[in-house]
Amino acid sequence: MSFYYWRTTFSLDSQEIHTLRDNTVDTLYVRYFDVDWPAADTAPTPLAPIRFESSPAGYTIIPVVYIRNKVFEKLTPAALPGFTNNVHTLIQRISQSQAIVSREVQFDCDWTERTKDTYFQFLRTYRTLSKQALSCTIRLHQVKYSGRTGIPPVDHGILMYYNMGAIDTSSLSSIYDKSISHRYTPSLRSYPLTLDLALPVFTWGLKVRDGKVVQLLDKMNTGLFDKDSSFRRQSPNRYTAAQGCFKSGYYFQAGDQVKIESVSAGDLKEIVTDVNQHTNHHIRNLIFFDLDSQNLQSYDKDLFKEILAHTD
């Protein structure tokens, strides 16, 4: 098993280090940077490249780059080689700054039917340029509708088993809900790529104002709100701000509502059971999203071993 590391500063604290050691994790999938194409710009641009505060030495690091689909909507065929080159160079530069040698690179992009050709061409061009193994994330809808969205030209895929629902005020969690995933899992059996399974172990909150979600509250959990006198609990995962207040750097207006979404150990076991069932136990690796002591503290320290055992 391994973990995704998705923070903009690479710095492992003791809990994170212990978790990696206890579970004999030697590989980390580290987000190097995002790529976006802001409306006002004439070219795609990298965002928030990672900075290393502690050394990644001792771990096998696999760079991951998240590219917004918009980039491939706007990228012309003529601009593709230059873009691929830029991405490659930046990945190299980051790796070299920490003496990281990786045999694999991973791309994360929620591509669509329209961007399929450009994205796949990008992957092919990248592979020729870097001569490394390639993997990429696959979302559930891309499994089910692979006839339309195609199979990416990579060595293996990572099935992203989260963020499958709409971010809204409904009772369903946008991170994981069985009723949603069940629409897709039967398609797994016939999917031709080897798949790792990426599992969510994070929580977040949705700040709701006038019935609309206005902000995501990164890594906030119910524990934080239960103890806060500025908030009134409406239900196990919903709160209302009784007055205007600051919390964890966010500001809440009086009347703002918070919906906390999380994934339980039971959910994770359920996911593994479902995926096992629909792939005939052909899950290659488990990768947990994401490594952060803020996430880890919500789970029993043996959780990861249990989930891994569940895959058998």
């Binding site: 923070r7 995002d34 900075r51 998240y66 963020n163 971010i167």
Partner: peptide
């Protein structure tokens, strides 16, 4: 999810869809 370095109050959602605000 990612918090950008440069624009500290905007969340870039890496594995989720984009949220449009009420405005």
């Amino acid at each position: 999810m990612t918090k950008t370095f440069l624009r500290k109050y905007w969340l870039i959602l890496t594995s989720a869809c984009c949220i449009s605000t009420a405005v």
